[in-house]
Nucleic acid binder design. Structure first.
Lengths: 217, 217
DNA sequence: CTATGTGAACAGCTTCACAGCG
DNA sequence: CGCTGTGAAGCTGTTCACATAG
């Protein structure tokens, strides 16, 4: 429905934040917001908010602002989360299990549909206690991906094998990878990678906090 | 030793990536790298690599490149990870436990030194099986933070109380917060926040992958 | 001849400021 | 009036291209 390209990456990131904040506003029964209100909540200028939204059409009312519920629907449509995305996970280790435990994406429109690992100890076993997912062998990845029509994958394997596993995922038809391995993946055009690396974030904090003084106190 | 400000945020983020890649290069016994090699591994232009490093001095040799081991040391010094940072965690739930499971930061110079929660069920209990950390009451946060000289904190509590908890952390002396709660924290100047939100990342993927066509196949 | 460091050109994102609409 | 939508201005970060060093 909307153009994929031509949209600045920072804008897309902020769309998620707008959506999140609007959902919070809706909880408080707010029917309408101005770009200023929305911006203040997120520490963004009002002009920025309007520019971001303007990329996708004009859904504000001069003198009034934006209808919260309507804007939420619009943002979901733009982001593509007005439908359910099936997601697979490769790597059923601690980190992988943690991802499942963090039930944040269910209600965001993402559904964990399959789990894979190459450890014989794990294959065939239930992924999490109480869950209905069974860990499958890597050999089953292509068939299952196609059968379930999965397009997104989470990669939670050790760094040394991450690139190879990513390639198998892509070959199986995965078009977006959420990468938790601390390596830079090389992927062909048409495949998108998003990286989550806590070490990088902690180093940012270390830099910001530590740059001022050498010793605490 | 280095200026905190005047350095672009994107540069700081890349410094972490350089460090990570250099450590990988060192494993393969590479003694020297050019900005081109380093850039190719990370999908960054060579000019960008040089510009980033140039902010902090001149540690390359024309005709040769950069000494890997030396550059690693220099980057650690710049990022402030040439020493150990003690980190506290608030929120001993699934997500918090997951963070511990992800033993990635130990060797990056970060040490989980204390865990807090307000759930009476958890207080006084060991945080993780086998670990030596005991979950403490939120009341102990200020004293423990000061006693252990902790400056960084990870926030893994439910969204509705995240802002309030962040304020208690800051009051206790925390100067950098790694925020896992899906809200925008408002913090005073002098305090740095880094956000980790899987939903935001998944929405990016959804946008990139889904924007092209409406239906798969 | 190879690779750095850097001023200058370029590109892209953000902010400003205001016309226009409800 | 209040607030959106948007051209124009401003700014920040990236890329280019070359002088310089080994």
């Amino acid at each position: 429905m909307n153009k994929p390209d031509g949209i600045p990456a920072p804008t897309v990131r902020r769309l998620s934040l707008y959506l999140r904040q609007l959902e919070a506003f809706l909880e408080t029964n707010l029917r309408t917001v101005s770009s200023k209100q929305l911006g203040q909540a997120l520490r963004i200028t009002d002009a920025q908010v309007r520019k971001d939204l303007a990329h996708f059409g004009q859904f504000g009312q001069p003198g009034i602002g934006y209808a919260v519920e309507e804007l939420i629907a619009k943002l979901r449509s733009i982001l593509g989360t007005d439908r359910i995305w099936k997601v697979l996970l490769v790597g059923a280790g601690n980190l992988g299990r943690a991802l499942l435990a963090y039930r944040g994406f269910d209600k965001k429109g993402f559904e964990l549909a399959a789990v894979f690992d190459n450890d014989p100890e794990k294959i065939g076993r239930p992924f999490a206690t109480g869950g209905d997912l069974v860990v499958r062998s890597m050999e089953e990845l292509p068939a299952e991906t196609e059968r379930l029509e999965i397009q997104l994958g989470m990669l939670a394997v050790p760094a040394p094998i991450a690139q190879a596993v990513a390639e198998r995922m892509i070959e199986a038809g995965i078009r977006g990878i959420l990468n938790f391995a601390p390596v830079s993946l090389h992927v062909p055009a048409g495949v998108t990678v998003a990286n989550v690396d806590m070490a990088v974030h902690l180093e940012q904090l270390s830099f910001s906090v530590g740059a001022g003084r050498e010793k605490p106190e």
